[in-house]
């Protein structure tokens, strides 16, 4: 069983990675219409096949899955049916007057004042559109009259696509094998792997267990700075998240002394030259970055073709 010695420090360094992506999400007819109507400060609900009024509007019934029949305007008043506080924000379930469902939103008041059954009304945030946060939250309104659901003859066109972004942060553990590999890269500018369970060539990246035999891998071994291309392609396209300006060569390289591939770039000046002269079997050499090494693959700036 894998286990670390007692002496292992608790705070191991980690490798930071971020995945940050832009999206354009389609809310669909019901949510798209609800969000489009936010600028008019109207709360759009839907009448379901079984007669229930649901707000915010839903395409399909949560109880029986049937599609909605038509849009209605829900009142801006209702009551709290449940609540909690998370990170200092009061989040409650609210049932708007005349509606059969509840939905979560923020309560803009002190916790002591919040009670189940309390009357509330929507408070709007000026300048916010296309978001349920155009309703800033709900405020206590003990005297608010009971509102009624109204027919909606015309509604804004549903929003077809909504900008959205998701950013995920990671602190990846190096583990003993990647840890040593990157220490060697940083400290000595050399790429080390471990021998396979039944083979003298090094596995890169190194690991405890051989992928093929599922037996323990062997001893550490230094690989050369030189190697052979196993596969490569010439990148002409641009895309979000790209780190180098095209054209360049994407290469999967087996370093001398290793058995598995390492992925890197080869810079090129001339695409036609690269097509003819860079391919499987081409010999290449790692060009290390100048200055202090960080202990990552980026310490190898690029590979270049060896004239042999």
């Amino acid at each position: 069983m894998f286990s670390a010695p007692e002496s292992m420090p608790l705070d191991m360094p980690t490798f930071h990675a971020e995945i940050s992506l832009p999206y354009t999400l389609t809310p669909g007819r019901a949510a798209g219409t609800f969000l489009a109507e936010m600028k008019n400060k109207r709360i759009v609900g839907s009448r379901m096949a079984n007669g229930d009024i649901v707000a915010p509007a839903q395409d399909f019934s949560a109880s029986d899955g049937e599609p909605m029949t038509n849009f209605v305007e829900a009142p801006q008043t209702g009551e709290i049916t449940a609540f909690t506080r998370v990170d200092g924000n009061i989040i409650a379930f609210i049932r708007l007057d005349g509606c059969s469902n509840q939905f979560p939103h923020r309560i803009l008041d002190q916790l002591d004042n919040v009670k189940i059954g309390a009357r509330v009304k929507a408070e709007w945030e000026d300048g916010v559109e296309q978001s349920i946060l155009a309703i800033k939250g709900f405020v206590l309104a003990p005297d608010a009259e009971v509102g009624t659901v109204r027919a909606l003859d015309e509604v804004e066109e549903a929003i077809g696509s909504l900008p959205y972004s998701m950013a995920l942060q990671y602190e990846h553990a190096y583990g003993p094998y990647y840890g040593r590999m990157f220490d060697e890269i940083k400290g000595f500018g050399r790429v080390m792997g471990v021998r396979g369970s039944s083979n003298d060539d090094a596995l890169l990246p190194p690991r405890e267990i051989d992928d093929i035999t599922h037996k323990p891998t062997g001893t550490w071994k230094t690989c050369a700075d030189t190697g052979t291309i196993r596969g490569c392609s010439i990148i002409n396209m641009e895309f979000i998240g790209q780190t180098l300006k095209p054209p360049y060569v994407y290469a999967e390289i087996v370093l001398d002394g290793a058995s598995t591939r390492l992925i890197h770039f080869i810079e090129i000046d001339d695409v036609e030259y690269a097509k003819k002269n860079i391919g499987p079997g081409t010999r290449v050499r790692a060009i290390w970055t100048q200055g202090e090494r960080k202990g990552s693959m980026a310490d190898i700036e690029r590979f270049e073709v060896i004239d042999e």
């Binding site: 490798f15 990675a17 990846h172 190096y174 990647y178 990157f182 990246p205 196993r230 596969g231 490569c232 392609s233 010439i234 990148i235 396209m237 895309f239 790209q242 780190t243 994407y250 290469a251 999967e252 390492l262 992925i263 890197h264 770039f265 990552s296 693959m297 980026a298």
Partner: peptide, 16 residues
């Protein structure tokens, strides 16, 4: 740790 910054979706790999 190992190659993501050089990736071109799966297209670079497939072409290679």
């Amino acid at each position: 740790f190992w190659g993501r910054e050089f990736a071109v979706g799966i297209m670079g790999f497939s072409a290679a």
